[in-house]
């Protein structure tokens, strides 16, 4: 009897906690006009938690009017659903905060130092898509790397 009560209380608490989390509902046009230039990507994941929570959906690129490479990495906060929401309520990941940094490379693979090689914060609400955008600092930049990590103060 005690066990049943305990389970019921835990379940009720879980539902209550889930109710505290806001997720995103979205709507968009079905027939797309855009013709993005998708980039084949190579991912290296050392943080499995981050990989499972923030899923990289696609990478697009274009050369802007000034002749500079512009890239956009689309990611989705996949922490939706009962258990994910329960877990993120318990761990305080709402909204989920990450830090990101773009590194630019020339045609020889050398890192091009930019004045903005800093970790920058980004918040992602569960169920929402985020776009990490960057413009190459100059025309020598041919390739890029996006680094992502969970938000902390270290």
């Amino acid at each position: 009897m005690k066990m049943v009560s305990f389970t019921a209380i835990c379940l009720a608490a879980g539902i209550a906690l889930c109710g505290c989390q806001n997720t995103v509902n979205s709507v968009e046009n079905k027939d797309k006009v855009m013709q993005p230039q998708e980039v084949m990507s190579k991912k290296v994941s050392t943080d499995r938690f981050l990989r499972d929570r923030l899923k990289i959906i696609r990478i697009d690129k274009k050369v802007n009017e000034a002749g500079l490479l512009k890239v956009q990495v689309t990611a989705l906060n996949a922490r939706t659903g009962f258990f994910s929401e329960l877990w993120s309520s318990l761990t305080g990941g709402k909204p989920y905060k990450v830090l990101y940094k773009f590194t630019w490379l020339d045609k020889d693979g050398m890192v091009i130092p930019t004045p903005s090689m800093n970790w920058l914060p980004m918040s992602v609400i569960p169920g929402d898509e985020v776009y990490f955008q960057a413009v190459a600092p100059n025309k020598n930049c041919q390739d890029f790397k996006l680094s992502l990590r969970e938000y902390d103060n270290d």
């Binding site: 009017e65 000034a66 512009k70 903005s116 960057a134 413009v135």
Partner: peptide, 8 residues
């Protein structure tokens, strides 16, 4: 910087 360089 991003928006200025992107504006052309």
């Amino acid at each position: 910087v991003k928006t200025m360089l992107d504006s052309g």
